[in-house]
Design a protein around this nucleic acid. Structure first.
Lengths: 212, 212
DNA sequence: GCCTGTGAAGCTATTCACAGCT
DNA sequence: AGCTGTGAATAGCTTCACAGGC
């Protein structure tokens, strides 16, 4: 009923709105929000419709109210606790995001199979040996898993997470991972993204624009 | 003419095919390639059509030949040199990918404004102070840039890269970045992706599947 | 005038379904 | 029988365009 892409854009709008709030801006028009989010005004209006919020033709949207409506829409359910598996460079980069991140999506545990990396706290997140995965996921009620492990370990790790009760996965391993149908999975394949950019760059002639 | 998403999937097929090659598999049917890539058989056939390769109804696709055809299609142009800006945890994670990565998309330079991180070589990639960005991009003929810098620096870094001749950007900063129309940009917004997963996880009831 | 909300049109991407081949 | 290649149909998403309001 609610589309994948709409959710993605709402998340972007929300961040832009929070920035506007910090900057003291009280109202915003759809075309302005669109410009700062990289999409069109019509799209903004459609997406906002989905949250049930209604703006005023004279002043546009109230920044605080719309941010609230989107937050309400995106995070209506109870907080979704997150576990990270794989404390490599990528894993650490993800942990560093947490402070600025949403309290409704707290990163509560991280796992690794390297004994040197576990049994400590990084950025407020406890690190456990991967053997304790099921135990911690179940006792903490963790619902979202982040796969930042090598490809070879991805499928088995996903299986263990799903068995322990996880219903959402963010997969950074460049491999297709099978999950049971009730689990939502999103793949962020970095090397694929780079190949895509390189492909389209290859089609374009470089040109020194004067108007930058 | 050629779709964004088709390019993305071809990149995935290619990786799967290389794995099959390593495993000694000589032929593959569309439904098998589809299963290992997370899409449908019809989609595989459509995408393969775009590369101009033709399989045989009796044996399916020749693994090596199809991998070659896709590589030819994706990397037909001269090698696209890549520069990374921002040597934080994320930047280092991206550098670590390079060994396994495509020689047609070599990471040749990295930049950072922290003097402690520059003037050395990490994973075969030279690290420069960010002041030298234009100079190195121009002299090396770099065509693709990776933005792994904080949001506040993203727009200005993008502008500098584009001015220096970059025509493809991979942006990890959670901000919309404006680029001139001849530049292709792909955004990988990690926190947005996590919010999306959390949203859909919130809609689903956890259930302990027996069939895992 | 310029805004929002929204039905309707348009477009793009995916899937169907089948001819043709072995 | 089971496969590929592909026109045709479908589904999904985005944009248009305008009524209604200040």
């Amino acid at each position: 009923m609610i589309s994948d892409k709409t959710v993605a854009r709402l998340s972007v709008y929300r961040r832009v709105l929070l920035d506007m709030q910090d900057a003291g801006q009280a109202h915003v028009f759809s075309h302005e929000l669109a410009a700062r989010s990289g999409c069109t005004a019509a799209q903004v209006r459609r997406d906002v419709m989905a949250t049930g919020y209604t703006g005023s033709p004279v002043r546009g949207y109230d920044v605080t109210a719309l941010a609230g409506s989107i937050s309400e829409f995106l995070f209506h359910s109870e907080a979704q606790k997150v576990a990270l598996v794989g404390i490599g460079n990528l894993g650490r980069a993800l942990m560093a995001f947490s402070p600025r991140r949403n309290p409704r999506i707290p990163l509560v545990a991280a796992f690794d199979n390297d004994p040197a990396k576990v049994n400590r706290v990084i950025h407020g997140c406890r690190c456990y040996p991967v053997q304790q995965l099921e135990e911690v996921v179940e006792s903490e009620g963790i619902r979202v898993g982040i796969l930042a492990v090598p490809s070879a370990a991805a499928q088995d790790t996903a299986r263990r997470l799903c068995r322990a009760g996880v219903v959402g996965l963010l997969n950074f391993a460049p491999t297709h991972v099978w999950v049971p149908p009730h689990v939502y999975i999103e793949n962020l394949d970095l090397s694929m993204a780079l190949e895509k950019v390189a492909f389209f760059a290859g089609l374009r002639a470089p040109q020194k624009e004067i108007s930058l």
